[in-house]
Amino acid sequence: MFAYIVKRLISGFLVVTLVSMAVFALFWYGPSSPAKPICDREQGVRCIPERLVAYEKSLGYDNPIYTEYGKFVKGIFVGREIAFRTDVYQCDAPCLGLSYNTKQPVTHELVSRLPATISVAVGGAFLYLLLGVPIGVAAARRRGSVADKALVSSFLFLSSIPYYLFALLTWLYLTVLWEAPVVSDVGYFSPFSDGPLKWFGGLFLAWVALGIFGCTQYTRYTRGAMVEALSEDYIRTAKAKGLPARTVVYRHGLRAALVPVVTIFGIDFGSLLAGTIFTERIFEIQGIGYWSLQAVGNKDLPVVAATTLFSAVMLIFSNLIVDVVYSFLDPRVRLS
């Protein structure tokens, strides 16, 4: 077990290293100089070739790529100093570089944007389960009924629509057209300084869009798993013992059925934390996803690199945790 976790950690670490190298190389060998965006940002049309060279020199882009990559990695662990031409900034560990836009350490901004992304992820994921599991169980219990068929086909229909269009329409109708009270003031507000109501109202539509769309998958999984579980022998035994139907379904059936659902849930939650670009873009939530989108637009390279790395780390960790948890939940699985 322990050996398995170590093995997975090593391979995850390797993946993160490769991803970071790929991102680093991409900018380095991209068509224009990696210092060009910051030079443009600061100098506008006065970013003449000589000045660009000065930026490249101060940012180390005249060194070989492996030296600079080494510095980047070292910065993550011990921090480093970064110079934009003559201006030197201190970037404390864990240093992912300085944003070209704000000249603030990327790590700080990442941390400051985390609450928004976590809020979206927690609320959305909560709705996945809250809606998906009970509906799935109910459908499984009434398997074959008209209600079940209607539900399954309508959810199939819904989940076949591209998500971002669903979210876009939710936003257009509720916010723009109908100007629904409270919830139409979309965006992320701090629950502490702006008040919980504003926080809730700002995120509500994003949660609903994510939740309704995502729960269709969970309904399908839960329903499928429940159908399978309810046909197992031990359920028949439990029924034969004369246990109440409720106990049989929830105590015995659901428990077994939830194992695969929890697995998928863990991975989904990880990918939500990795940044929900469409959700954040459409509902104007200043989280990690929107930030990365803006950074790509501004060519804020350190931010792009950092968000990409962050997403990769989130995905790897959620996968690892899920695999470990799964082995506890289902003793049939042996990790090796």
Partner: peptide, 12 residues
């Protein structure tokens, strides 16, 4: 490693 099914993964 399993894959995400979240809507943000652009369809499936």
């Amino acid at each position: 490693m399993s894959q995400p099914t979240a809507p943000e993964a652009l369809g499936s």
